[in-house]
């Protein structure tokens, strides 16, 4: 047993347990990797709570993402899966089409969207122009930057959609038939047959959407850099994080900025501790209800 478990035991202690403890320790220090870490007590936390003007926008951005975009993703994936499940022709074709975007690497997909949604020359606004609509400023405006990212994430919802589709198709046929015999219309069948059977899967997807939402980084980072546009001479990306106007400054982006741009390791650790507290609360909620969901875990990636 020990032999079988040993890789994980080693891996877990080196790459998870130890750093977790160290994060706690470093959060009470000032540490720039060059001179030794220096104990400064609660100073990092007090700067986090009172001094740093970027913390609050970052927290709000992340919460908005989790509160609005994650549910949207689930609803959208479910809607598409429902349509697919009812398809009589070309199920395989449609399934492939809806799944493909999920395969596009996040960086590539983000680059594509920033170009497509360029307010002046992007194809989307060009098409809208032909329809007589003045397109929005998309990634260039603080109001539209998050909706643009949301579109990107809805486009790549394929994995969740496939899982939902399988769950819906797994609903025993006879349940529908007896419901139909009882005179239930399509909507009521959806409400009373489909939903109860697939709800654990949906719930699970939502929960893991939240976990992913807490880590949302790549798309925000790339979109901000590319949309800030106008490649600078040495590709200096430091000041573009969160572009425009902190609209894409999600919490992990802020942590990256302090830890790996400014190399304020102590302060970044304090930020990580706050994230840990929130994430751990979410995890606890999940684990306490794990009996209901554990079979469905796995869509983490």
């Amino acid at each position: 047993m020990l032999l079988l478990m040993s890789p994980w035991l080693a891996g877990f202690s080196i790459f998870f347990g130890y750093p977790l403890v160290m994060t706690g320790y470093l959060s009470f220090t000032h540490y720039d990797l060059l001179s030794p870490a220096k104990w400064i007590g609660w100073a990092n936390y007090s700067y986090l709570l009172h001094g740093d003007p970027q913390v609050w926008p970052a927290v709000v951005n992340s919460l908005e993402w989790i509160g609005i975009v994650v549910p949207l993703q689930v609803l959208f994936a479910f809607g598409v899966a429902l349509m697919l499940a009812r398809a009589r022709l070309g199920l395989g074709f449609f399934r492939t089409v809806f799944y493909l975007p999920a395969l596009a690497p996040p960086v590539a997909a983000t680059l594509g969207f920033v170009y497509l949604l360029n307010p002046a020359t992007g194809p989307i606004n060009t098409v809208l122009d032909h329809l007589g609509i003045q397109g929005p400023l998309w990634f260039q405006s603080p109001g539209w930057a998050k909706p643009s990212l949301a579109l990107l994430s809805l486009w790549g919802v394929g994995n969740t959609m496939i899982i939902f589709l399988a769950a819906i198709l797994d609903v025993p046929r006879h349940l529908y038939e007896s419901a139909e015999l009882d005179g239930a219309g399509p909507l009521r069948r959806l409400r009373w047959v489909t939903l109860p059977t697939v709800s654990p899967v949906v719930l699970f997807a939502a929960v893991f959407g939240v976990i992913q939402g807490l880590q949302y980084f790549t798309q925000a980072y790339v979109a901000a850099n590319i949309a800030a546009g106008q490649a600078s001479q040495a590709g200096d990306t430091i000041n573009n994080l969160g572009y425009p106007q902190d609209a894409t400054l999600f919490y992990p982006v802020l942590l990256y900025q302090h830890g790996f741009v400014n190399f304020n390791m102590g302060y970044a650790s304090a930020l990580a501790m706050l994230l840990l507290a929130v994430a751990f609360a979410v995890v606890l909620v999940i684990l306490l209800n794990s009996r209901r969901w554990v079979h469905y875990a796995g869509a983490v990636r």
């Binding site: 360029n118 307010p119 400023l137 546009g229 106008q230 490649a231």
Partner: peptide
């Protein structure tokens, strides 16, 4: 403001 942002989005890169 909006017009400026839109205009700038259509411009080429600074160092090109």
């Amino acid at each position: 403001y909006d017009k400026v942002v839109r205009f700038q989005a259509g411009l080429g890169d600074e160092f090109s």
